[in-house]
């Protein structure tokens, strides 16, 4: 049964973000703030970089503020001033990406002013931005969110999101696939990957795909076939999932931007689940120098090794 999700705090949150942005910009604490602003379509939002305190009023937070802005601090940082501290508006899921990037020496905590958002959820990409947030229209990632209130930020508006337990779609889908035979799973993924047009939107939007030259673009040697054919597509998605294993904390931007609706976050969630089970590791909660795949324990499981 579809139920409305309470997003009434978002207007107060918006004001709080505006006030904070106004303060830090006018006090000169930061040289820019990355946040969300209304976009042209009704109810929609888009990322914005503001450098003047007078622009602080442009900032909003709503259920259509879906983007993970962390990506603007790494490879998409063209519009970000090079010098000075940067303010950034983050949801709990986005914060996990920031934390991961700090662990990978891509960002420095002292160079950021983090404005955390108390978040009750955002819209799924399959719904129009003016839709109300309901148990039906909420993004799948929000259904299993464990970070509605971001921790360790420089500023978090005092509002408390009203949350309710929702059915975990990724967990359910992973369990469904795990119960299939290998051949059935292969058929599922073959079908999914055959849709891929190699637009690399998943790569563009991912805060962790910050390599200057992707392994998959190399031609000496060609590790992964680049043309949008099934063999290369499959290889690309396997390599992508492997490279994100232990790093991806589930902002699900890859899945949101995929024009072919490939359930990309499913692979990431599966890897996260395995790494949690194997090494009790969860990405994104604290800045860790070493991830699960760049560290080891002498007593690690090796039941699969003869």
């Amino acid at each position: 049964m579809t139920q409305a999700i309470d997003t009434s705090i978002y207007s107060a949150v918006t004001s709080a973000i505006q006030a904070e942005a106004q303060r830090i910009l006018s006090e000169g604490q930061v040289s820019a703030v990355v946040g969300y602003a209304p976009a042209r379509r009704k109810g929609s939002a888009q990322p914005v970089v503001i450098t003047e305190a007078s622009d602080a009023g442009k900032l909003i937070f709503s259920a259509s503020c879906v983007n993970n802005l962390a990506v603007y601090l790494t490879k998409a940082k063209k519009e970000i001033p090079k010098n000075g501290k940067i303010g950034i508006v983050v949801k709990g899921c986005d914060l996990k990406a920031l934390v991961g990037l700090m662990g990978e020496t891509q960002l420095k905590r002292e160079e950021l002013h983090i404005i955390g958002v108390p978040c009750a959820g955002v819209l799924a990409s399959t719904f129009q931005p003016d839709k109300a947030l309901t148990t039906e229209t909420i993004a799948p990632k929000c259904r299993e969110c464990d970070a509605q209130l971001p921790q360790g930020c420089d500023f978090v508006p005092p509002q408390q999101p009203v949350t309710q337990a929702l059915e975990k779609k990724y967990a359910a889908e992973i369990a469904r696939l795990e119960a299939l035979t290998p051949a059935e799973r292969w058929a599922f993924w073959k079908e999914q990957f055959s849709k891929c047009i190699k637009c690399y939107a998943c790569r563009q939007v991912c805060p962790f795909c910050y390599c200057e030259q992707c392994l998959c673009d190399r031609n000496k040697p060609q590790m992964v076939e680049t043309s949008p054919r099934p063999a290369g597509n499959t290889a690309w998605h396997i390599v992508r999932a492997m490279h994100l294993a232990g790093r991806c904390a589930g902002c699900a931007e890859c899945e949101r931007v995929c024009p072919m609706d490939i359930p990309l976050n499913l692979l990431n969630r599966k890897m996260a689940k395995e790494l949690k089970e194997l090494y009790d590791y969860e990405a994104g909660f604290e800045i860790k120098e070493k991830g699960p795949l760049s560290s080891y324990d002498e007593k690690d499981d090796q039941s699969f090794i003869k």
Partner: peptide, 29 residues
Amino acid sequence: NYHARRRFAAFRKLLEFIGVDLDRLQFSW
């Protein structure tokens, strides 16, 4: 080999999820 052990523990899980029969992939010391 410790690093490899973790890497392949994760990778085989991924391949399994994609639908590769793990009976085709053997690890040994």
